[in-house]
């Protein structure tokens, strides 16, 4: 454990810039998307000045209803949601991909003596970076809420038309209590990032980013419990749909994915060959 602790302490210092990047990205994306949501609400003649914290959070976390429940010609690509999750993964993937390899990464690995300690330290660092991202998102959302309505309730009602939900039988009546979803999402998000970090380390950053897209995009087209994106959309949760995914289900999925990806990654890394000019793990 001391090896993991020393490795983490090292990564917190070496990866300081990337931790700050995580915070900056969280704040920037949240700010941009919420403001964009207010502009869109104005276009729909919805009074955004009454948006609660829950409404503002929904602007960034909504995602898209299951495709069989919305009119095809009324699908709006959830750009803000895609941007948020891509930004969430950016700093962890970039730090681990860049400084987990190369001469610097190999030097730190050799000084750690145990590959498993080094690997686990990187994973824990990535979790911390992701938590910081979500703290920045939360603070930004609260700041913007303090500017518009000043209502910090986690119930959403006014924003739903601004995110273009269609009415259907499975949709619950508003207001929508997002408490359980919002409280779980930072942890679910952190666990979602872990496999991406493992991929970045074992393969490369580009592959990890492609995996982000593969994790998110299919959820816009199909409904499947195997697609990570399914668990990251507020409007697919039981906060909105009578058949929606509960926070416990989402957490269980995230824990399984996070745990197994870390375990498998550690086992692969343990026996990998570290070769090449730009170090790759083979």
């Amino acid at each position: 454990m001391i090896g993991v602790y020393n490795g983490l302490r090292f990564d917190l210092r070496a990866g300081k810039r990337y931790l700050l990047l995580s915070v900056a990205l969280g704040a920037t994306v949240a700010f941009t998307v919420i403001l964009g949501g207010w502009v869109k609400a104005s276009a729909y003649q919805i009074d955004w000045s009454e948006f609660t914290l829950g409404d503002n959070a929904l602007l960034i976390l909504a995602g898209l209803l299951p495709p069989d429940q919305i009119e095809r010609d009324s699908i709006l690509f959830p750009i803000g949601w895609m941007l948020l999750w891509t930004a969430c993964a950016l700093a962890p993937i970039a730090y681990v991909g860049k400084y987990g390899k190369g001469y610097f990464g190999v030097s730190s690995l050799l000084k750690s003596k145990k590959r498993s300690s080094w690997f686990l330290a990187k994973c824990i660092w990535a979790l911390i970076a992701t938590f910081l991202f979500w703290i920045a998102v939360a603070i930004t959302a609260m700041f913007l809420t303090s500017i518009n309505s000043g209502h910090f309730s986690l119930e959403a009602s006014s924003s739903i038309e601004a995110i273009n939900l269609s009415r259907n039988d499975e949709l619950l009546d508003s207001p929508y209590d997002l408490t359980s979803f919002l409280l779980m999402i930072p942890l679910i998000g952190a666990l979602f990032v872990l496999p991406l970090v493992v991929i970045s380390l074992l393969k490369n950053e580009l592959f990890a980013f492609l995996t982000v897209l593969v994790s998110l995009l299919p959820a816009l087209l199909i409904v499947s419990g195997f697609i990570p994106g399914e668990y990251l959309m507020a409007v697919r949760s039981d906060c909105f749909l009578s058949t929606g995914i509960s926070s416990i289900q989402s957490l269980a999925y995230a824990v399984l994915v996070g745990f197994f990806s870390t375990l498998v990654g550690a086992l692969i890394f343990r026996g990998s060959n570290i070769v090449g000019m730009v170090e790759t793990y083979d």
């Binding site: 070496a14 030097s107 050799l110 000019m277």
Partner: peptide, 24 residues
């Protein structure tokens, strides 16, 4: 170990890079 072209944290000084690695 010194293998191939050494690379370190780009925005840190030589001393800070050494101190970081030594802190492990």
């Amino acid at each position: 170990l010194l293998i191939e072209t050494p690379s370190f944290l780009a925005h840190y000084t030589g001393l800070d890079n050494c101190r970081l690695l030594a802190s492990i």
